[in-house]
Simulated assay, not measured.
Amino acid sequence: RGVRVRLLVPRHNNQKIVGLASRTYYGELIETGVEIYQYDKGMIHAKVLTIDEEIAAVGSANYDMRSFRLHYEVCQVLYSADVARELTDQFERDLTDSIPLKIEDSLERPLTERIVEQSARLFSPLL
């Protein structure tokens, strides 16, 4: 439908099992057209969503049922073009310190690495 989705994730996650489980989803996302970038300048933990540089959602929620129902995490939706534009500009700056992932990156991982990641994925509902 012409929607561009770009996802910025930390290259090195401070919670090892979360990083391992997360990587199991990257191939599927890339195949559907999502652009994934790994932030390489340090840890990034922001939960920011911008839509058409007009709407922004910012908060602590991981956008999953666990965050909303168990941890009572929240996000703020802002209908402000100025805020959305500023957040988009920051996202673009963060992309310059990031490595784009390609489908080959997902497919060419060693078998042992994929097994460990798939094992971690079993715990995804709990993470």
Rank of each mutant, 00 (worst) to 15 (best):
R1E: 14
R4F: 04
V5A: 13
L7A: 11
L7C: 12
P10H: 01
P10I: 00
R11Y: 08
R11Q: 14
H12S: 10
N13G: 09
Q15I: 13
K16F: 04
I17F: 03
I17H: 01
V18N: 02
G19N: 09
A21F: 06
S22R: 13
R23A: 15
T24H: 05
Y25K: 10
Y26D: 06
Y26C: 11
G27I: 05
E28S: 12
I30Y: 01
E31M: 06
T32S: 15
E35I: 09
I36P: 06
Y37M: 05
Q38F: 04
Q38P: 07
K41R: 15
G42N: 01
G42A: 05
M43W: 01
I44Q: 00
I44H: 00
H45Q: 01
A46T: 00
K47R: 13
V48Q: 02
V48P: 09
V48D: 02
L49Q: 03
L49T: 11
L49N: 03
T50K: 04
I51F: 14
I51T: 04
I51P: 05
D52P: 06
D52G: 14
E53V: 06
E54H: 11
E54D: 14
I55L: 15
I55E: 10
A57C: 14
A57W: 02
G59S: 10
G59L: 12
G59C: 13
S60Q: 07
S60R: 02
N62P: 11
D64M: 11
D64S: 08
M65S: 14
S67W: 01
F68Q: 09
H71F: 13
Y72S: 12
Y72C: 08
E73K: 10
E73Y: 09
E73D: 15
E73L: 10
V74K: 11
Q76P: 00
Q76V: 15
V77H: 05
V77S: 05
V77D: 06
L78A: 14
Y79N: 15
Y79T: 12
Y79L: 14
A81G: 10
D82K: 12
V83R: 01
V83T: 13
A84L: 08
A84M: 05
A84G: 08
A84I: 10
R85C: 11
L87N: 04
T88R: 08
T88Q: 10
D89N: 13
F91Q: 06
D94Q: 01
L95Y: 02
L95S: 10
L95D: 06
D97M: 03
I99G: 00
P100R: 00
L101T: 03
K102D: 12
I103Q: 03
E104H: 04
D105R: 02
L107K: 13
L107M: 08
E108P: 00
E108Y: 05
R109Y: 02
L111G: 02
T112G: 04
I115R: 09
E117M: 13
Q118N: 14
A120Q: 02
A120G: 11
R121A: 15
F123I: 06
S124P: 02
L126R: 05
L126H: 08
